[in-house]
Design a binder for these strands. Structure first.
Length: 188
DNA sequence: AACGAAGTCAACCGCTAATTT
DNA sequence: GAAATTAGCGGTTGACTTCGT
């Protein structure tokens, strides 16, 4: 059954649009999601008249069309925060993104791969130099946004250091947990 | 000006987890 | 409880742009 399903899926894919989204497609998707909400992406893809798969629609919405997405250059504070979060969380891009307002996991991942991974390696070679010469400017980032994601990363809370990884008790963008982490880091 | 190398980033793929039936 | 469906994640690809020669 699975193989039949795969064959159907491959055949169907031949007729789906791929590649870059047009402004017209963006508009269709945005309109449909505004009315019906961002769920059941397969239905969204079908009902909105977009010749795209649901996965593609979801990605486009999450990374470009949804409100409150900041695009363009990363600030020094964001750089610094990403570097620190990556040291803490590794390649858990979605977790990192949840703590950097208005940035998507895909954008952060790309930014890390093209910019920060080099910077990070450089830092490792120069351990005496702190990650940032300036103190982390948490206030400069929009911290007021409490979201549904406050309970995410609960899986991490079962890790070795419960206090450090207990995100559930902090506001998603409160950054209190980051301060806790940085204090622990500095003490060691 | 022309060309190749390197960098960037939007989009896709495969997989797993979560949810629904 | 099992199967099917949906959502979400991280890695990778490939088109496009920029840079260096």
């Amino acid at each position: 059954m699975a193989s039949k399903k795969i064959k159907t899926s491959v055949a169907a894919k031949k007729f789906l649009n791929r590649g870059a989204w047009t402004a017209e497609e963006d508009e269709k998707l945005a309109q449909y999601v505004a009315i019906n909400g961002p769920r059941r992406w397969k239905l969204i893809a079908f009902n909105s008249g977009l010749n795209r798969c649901g996965k593609s629609c979801r990605l486009r919405w999450l990374n470009y069309l949804r409100p409150n997405i900041k695009r363009g250059n990363f600030s020094d504070a964001e750089d610094d925060l990403i570097l620190r979060l990556h040291r803490l969380l590794g390649n858990r891009w979605s977790l990192i993104a949840q703590r950097i307002p208005e940035r998507t996991d895909n954008e952060i991942k790309n930014y890390w791969n093209s910019h920060l991974s080099k910077k990070s390696k450089l830092m490792e070679k120069l351990p005496a130099i702190p990650l940032s010469a300036a103190p982390l400017q948490l206030e400069s980032i929009n911290c007021g946004k409490e979201t549904e994601a406050s309970g995410e990363a609960a899986d991490l809370s079962s890790d070795t250091d419960d206090k450090l990884f207990d995100f559930s008790s902090k506001g998603t963008y409160g950054f209190e947990w980051v301060k806790d982490f940085l204090e622990l880091e500095e003490d060691s």
